[in-house]
Amino acid sequence: MSDTNIQSVVQQMRTLAQSGRAGGGEAASGMPLVDGTAPPNELNFAATLKDSIRAVNALGKASGELQTRFELGDPDVSLPQVMVAGGKAGLAFEAASQIRNRLLTAYQEVMRMSV
């Protein structure tokens, strides 16, 4: 997967995280801010990662469901729909795998640093 594709996925994750934060008024930990104002532009990494994994899982489940419906002869499901859903699920999984690999590499690099 190229760097531009990975950057695109990361940008989509940031956009999703910001849209999920649109309500405002809560800190990254879920606790309300003391003064009642919106938190600064902080991303809750754990929540973003969890949402991204859930989205990848949802794409996989939807793809599997379409495939099963097609195999059972559902007239509302066509082969191109199944192939596109499978492609989306595969691409999302590959992107998640690449992000995991990059995070692991970064973690290992940080652990090798001397203090």
Rank of each mutant, 00 (worst) to 15 (best):
T4R: 11
T4V: 08
V9E: 08
Q12E: 05
M13V: 08
M13L: 04
R14N: 06
T15G: 01
A17N: 08
Q18W: 08
Q18D: 07
A22L: 02
G24M: 12
E26H: 13
A27M: 07
A27F: 02
S29N: 13
M31K: 10
M31E: 13
P32K: 15
L33I: 05
T37R: 07
A38Y: 04
A38I: 03
P40C: 11
E42V: 07
N44A: 11
A47Y: 00
K50I: 09
S52M: 05
L59S: 02
K61R: 12
A62T: 06
S63R: 00
S63L: 04
E65C: 04
L66W: 00
R69Y: 08
P75H: 05
P75N: 12
D76I: 09
S78K: 13
G87L: 10
G90S: 14
G90I: 02
G90C: 01
L91G: 11
L91S: 14
A92G: 14
F93P: 00
E94G: 02
Q98S: 12
I99D: 01
I99Q: 00
L103C: 10
L104S: 13
A106P: 02
A106E: 06
Y107C: 09
Q108A: 07
V110D: 05
V110E: 08
V110R: 11
M111C: 00
R112N: 15
R112K: 15
S114G: 10
V115C: 05
